[in-house]
Design a protein around this nucleic acid. Structure first.
Lengths: 181, 181
DNA sequence: GACGATACGGAGCGATCGTTCCGGTTGTCA
DNA sequence: TGACAACCGGAACGATCGCTCCGTATCGTC
C-alpha cells in the first residue's frame, strides 16, 4: 500500500474521492463507470485498486460508520443518558439522510463483511447508549440494539419518502420514551 | 375489453394471476419474463394486454389499494375513533408487509398515475380516520395524512429489515398517541 | 537516456431485462 | 368447412452494467 507508484497512489485517492461523492448522492445504484469518469480515470483503474464495486463501496462507507461508532463511545459516559441518547439518534438520522451511501449501507439487511467489523462496532456502541438511557428511565426497556437499528432504517425510509420532515423522527422518539413520564 | 377472443380473455386472466403472485413475492423487481413463464404464455402476450411492465404492476396493485381505501371508509363512522385508527394502521402494515408489491407501490415517493386515482383515495380515507382519532384526543394533532403515509412507509422498511418485529410498530403507534394520557 | 516493471485507459465481453417483431396458430363467423 | 382476422410464442434487439483484457503510456532506476 505504500510502495505504489506515485501516479497509482494519486489515482487511488481520486477514485476514493469520486466514489465518496457519487455514492453519497445516489447510493450503491450509481454505475461504476460514472465514478471512473468523475475521477478522471478508466474503469480498469478502479478495478486495479478495488476488487469490486462492492469493495469500493465498503471502503467509502466503513470510515463513516466508524465515525458514528466512535462518537457513540465518546458519549457513553455522559451525565444525562436520556438526552444524550436522543441527541445521538437524531444526529445519526440527520447525517445519514444526507448521504445515500450511508442509508444503503445501514439498510443492507444482513450483509457482507459489514456484520463483522465496523457494523458490529456501531451496533455495540448503539446498544451501550441505549442501555444507559434505559437504565436512567428515559427510554422504554422492551427494545434492544437490533430493534434500534431497525428503527433507524425506518426513519431513513421516512426521511427519504418525505424529505425534511424532522417532526416524524420526533414521533418515533416519543414512542421510544417511557410512557406518561 | 369484452369483444376479445376467448383465448385472449383467458390469457389475460392468467397473466394477471401470475403477476399478482410474482409481484407479491418479489415486488417490482421481478423480471417480466418470469411472470410470462409463470402464466404459461410468451412475453409478447403480456405486452398485447398491458402496454408496459409498469402498467401491469399498477393493474395488480390498484385493486388492493382500493380495498384499503374502502376498508378505511367503512370504518370512518365507528364509535371509538382512536381504537379504530390504531387497528387500521396495524392491519395495513401487516397486510402490506406480506406483499412486496404493495410495499413497492406505497414507497414510490411521488409516482405515476398513482398520485391521482386510488392513491389519492387511500390518502383521503387515511386522513379522515386520522382526523377523527385526533378529534377524539387519542392521536397527537401535529401530524397530517401525508405524515401518516410516510410513517407507514417507514414501518414497512422496519418490517423488511427486521421481519416479525410487531412491537416496533407499537413503538411508532405509541409515538402517535397524545402524551401522558 | 534507456530499460524493465508497473499502471493506465477504454474497448469489449457476458449477463440481465424491457420491449418489439414476425411467422405460425387458433378462434370466430358466414 | 373454409377463410380471415385476431392472437400467440419466443427469438431478437438495444440499453445497461459489472468486470476483464491488452496494447500503450508512464514511472522509477541505473
Amino acid at each position: 500500500m505504500e510502495k505504489m507508484r506515485a501516479d497509482a497512489r494519486r489515482n487511488r485517492a481520486k477514485v476514493l474521492a469520486a466514489a465518496e461523492e457519487a455514492f453519497a448522492l445516489d447510493g450503491l445504484a450509481v454505475p461504476l463507470d460514472d465514478i471512473a469518469r468523475l475521477a478522471g480515470v478508466g474503469a480498469g483503474t478502479v478495478y486495479r485498486h478495488f476488487p469490486s464495486k462492492e469493495a469500493l463501496f465498503q471502503a467509502v462507507v466503513l470510515e463513516r460508520i466508524q465515525q458514528f461508532a466512535e462518537e457513540a463511545r465518546a458519549l457513553a459516559g455522559a451525565e444525562e443518558p436520556g438526552e444524550v441518547f436522543v441527541d445521538y439518534f437524531v444526529r445519526v438520522i440527520k447525517q445519514a439522510s444526507l448521504n445515500r451511501a450511508i442509508c444503503d449501507a445501514l439498510a443492507e439487511s444482513s450483509g457482507h463483511a459489514f456484520k463483522a467489523g465496523a457494523g458490529e462496532e456501531f451496533r455495540a456502541a448503539l446498544a451501550e447508549l441505549l442501555a444507559r438511557a434505559q437504565a436512567s428511565g428515559t427510554i422504554r426497556p422492551d427494545i434492544d440494539g437490533d430493534d434500534l437499528r431497525a428503527l433507524i432504517v425506518g426513519c431513513l425510509a421516512v426521511e427519504r419518502y418525505a424529505p425534511g420532515s424532522a417532526h416524524l423522527v420526533r414521533v418515533v422518539i416519543d414512542g421510544l420514551r417511557t410512557r406518561a413520564g
